[in-house]
Design a protein around this nucleic acid. Sequence first.
DNA 1: ATTAAAATATGAAATAGATCAGATATTAAA
DNA 2: TTTAATATCTGATCTATTTCATATTTTAAT
Lengths: 227, 227
Amino acid sequence: MTANICVSCDNKSCPVFNQGKEAKEIISKNTVRIGFKKDEMLFKQGAFSTHLYYINSGYTKIYKEFPSKNLILKIANPEMILGTASLFGTKTHLYSASFIGKGEVCQIDRNIFAQLLLKNPENSLELLLNQLYKSESEVFSRFASLTQKQLHGRLADAILYLSMEVFKSDRFEFPFTRRDLAELTSMSNESAIKIFKEFQNDGIVSLENNVLHILSLDLLKRISEIG
Amino acid sequence: MTANICVSCDNKSCPVFNQGKEAKEIISKNTVRIGFKKDEMLFKQGAFSTHLYYINSGYTKIYKEFPSKNLILKIANPEMILGTASLFGTKTHLYSASFIGKGEVCQIDRNIFAQLLLKNPENSLELLLNQLYKSESEVFSRFASLTQKQLHGRLADAILYLSMEVFKSDRFEFPFTRRDLAELTSMSNESAIKIFKEFQNDGIVSLENNVLHILSLDLLKRISEIG
DNA sequence: ATTAAAATATGAAATAGATCAGATATTAAA
DNA sequence: TTTAATATCTGATCTATTTCATATTTTAAT
């Protein structure tokens, strides 16, 4: 876990960063950029939430911890901000977050972040609420998928989710274990393995050199529909 | 479905309402109070979201619609605001909402609401984010319950949720059908009926004259824990 | 008040999915 | 490189839960 002061950062996509010179100054002094290795944890469920995290690069899994098995709520991609819910008041993290590959985040004190947000409340509100709507929409979709569909439909949904919402391609580096896939679909490891293999055997997806390729989007969507 | 102009409204608990005289004036002109009967629908999944709703009285179920069975995401209680996610930008409702008993809401145009929020951005942000944190927390808990636990644990969780988060009492008017209970726990009607009856037979809860009484909170919690 | 419709109840059969057990392959460690 | 550990794979058994069938009770409608 390496850390760098944010002064030298010139990240154009960072929404807090793009608020003029004075904001830039404030941020520089109060933000660090941190590098994470594979499987390293960003923050842990139940701990006090003191900072916000802007994901510069890499993908993190957001999950609830359980004694034996976790439940992956979503995969956060670059340019997402984590921890917004705890901006006001003393709050604890509702979930854990850890990197599935390597990555980099900007860590900002929540008071500083709140202060900057309120410099431009209209945009801030809009930014937050829009991210929130998207996030809520995704969570509800996954909620529905996991509670209403059976194994094949759930796995199809998970792959579609990764393709459409997370990696935004029908061909992407696949950094997950079968266990991750199981925790994403709320099924046993064995079932995840079996059905994922089925999908490969049936020519729906292929996995070569850890690159997942969706061969038949139509079939995948149909499996998702029939549940 | 009856409607009254909000001028005469003197609701102290409404957070938008309590912003001074000019705000009061604006609201009066742009808000209506609407009465709903049992099972009437407040808004429907997929429709454009044009207004926000402040629940004055009554309980609404927030649910995703499916061909055969719905999934109840949560029960909204009085003083909650629905529709905040769609404040900025053109958005559609992610879920349907309908009253489980009779109730009353204040319906406010979202542009007016946004305008009022920005009059006092700090409080607004805090209000919204806090409601959001609570809502997210509840949804994630239910998400975990429904995907990780089996029938008895799920029903116990649902009853605990109703008791602790919604009705805030261990004895409350129970306006649900067994079907509602099934949609709240994501199980078949028959299973909901069987296990709910079991809980009654085992002296864990009682249901007389449509009043649910939690007889053994300890047992209910233990069932929730062991899943 | 009578009938129809819907909700609740309960057991038996069917089945989706988990668990178990054992084999092979891949990765990490010594 | 060899060994150990972990991940993937696959079939067989077991079990939780759904589905089906049918009875009873409650609610709504005429």
